[in-house]
Design a protein around this nucleic acid. Structure first.
Length: 258
DNA sequence: ATGACTTGCGCGGCAAGA
């Protein structure tokens, strides 16, 4: 079973790339972030024509997440814990498979910049809610994959130039501490389960030739419960997509579970 | 030292991203 996460930075701008990816790779499940459109504007027909079921949690202008799956599934929209939060940043699916089911949480964690503002407060509060929700989901003792754009650089080796990120909401000690809290619930960072290499990134800024200089960061992640980690066969960053015409600034992260 | 892209909204430059 292949499960992908990809921040597409506007699903309508990236539709041709997305359709080509679905045709080429044909993942069982793909989690999308930064749709930047409302549900009604999501290109559902084109995606369904390739054999995918779509669950969309959109928002006008920014944010927006979706889960696409070849198999039909049950879905929940929104991250529990704050009724007043109107950002569309979380959607969750239970996908039946040969092991019973795999639960997939697709998330777009707030950026949080600039630090020292209400934006950073919101990020930390959102991370606390994610920790609480993960804690709850882990009590089910089933295969769980929490995947998406975490906007967290976990360790110095996850950035080409860590010194450039010291004051950034993606790399501040409090941000990394909360990410470790999440891992310490018993989740496995899929990429780090298969490789300790430096230089493995999922995002490169559009500016100043960042991709050409491999000036990237690893901020898109897949975190696995024990039941999912036991089935982990491989992890791949599809970095060639960053070299396409009009690319997203993120590339897909793809895991395979037996 | 600074600015450097891209997108949505909507038609003029911002906000937001990371």
């Amino acid at each position: 079973m292949q499960i992908v996460t990809w921040n597409v930075n506007s699903v309508r701008q990236r539709l041709e790339h997305l359709l080509a990816y679905l045709k080429d790779v044909h993942p069982d499940v793909i989690c999308l972030q930064e749709l930047k459109c409302v549900d009604e504007a999501f290109p559902r027909a084109e995606i369904e024509a390739l054999g995918y079921n779509c669950a969309v949690h959109g928002q006008k202008g920014f944010n927006g997440v979706a889960i696409l799956s070849t198999r039909p599934f049950d879905v929940e929209r929104g991250l529990p814990g704050d009724e007043s939060d109107v950002h569309s940043r979380y959607i969750e699916a239970v996908i039946p498979d040969e092991h019973g089911a795999t639960r997939v949480g697709c998330l777009y964690l707030p950026n949080g910049n600039p630090a020292g503002t209400e934006k950073y407060t919101y990020k930390l509060a959102w991370m606390d809610r994610l920790i609480r929700h993960a804690q709850h989901l882990l009590t089910y003792e089933e295969a769980l994959v929490l995947t998406g754009d975490f906007n967290v650089i976990p360790e110095p080796q996850d950035a080409k130039d860590p010194s450039q990120w010291m004051q950034d909401a993606l790399f501040l000690p409090q941000t990394r501490q909360k990410f470790r809290q999440l891992l310490n619930l018993g989740l496995t960072d899929a990429l780090r389960a298969v490789s300790d290499e430096a230089g493995l990134y999922t995002f490169w800024d559009y500016q100043a030739g960042a991709f050409q200089r491999n000036n990237g960061i690893r901020i898109d992640h897949a975190l696995l419960s024990g039941q999912a980690a036991d089935r982990l066969a491989s992890v791949c960053i599809d970095r060639s997509l960053r070299a396409a015409e009009k690319p997203s600034d993120h590339v897909p992260l793809r895991i395979t579970l037996n």
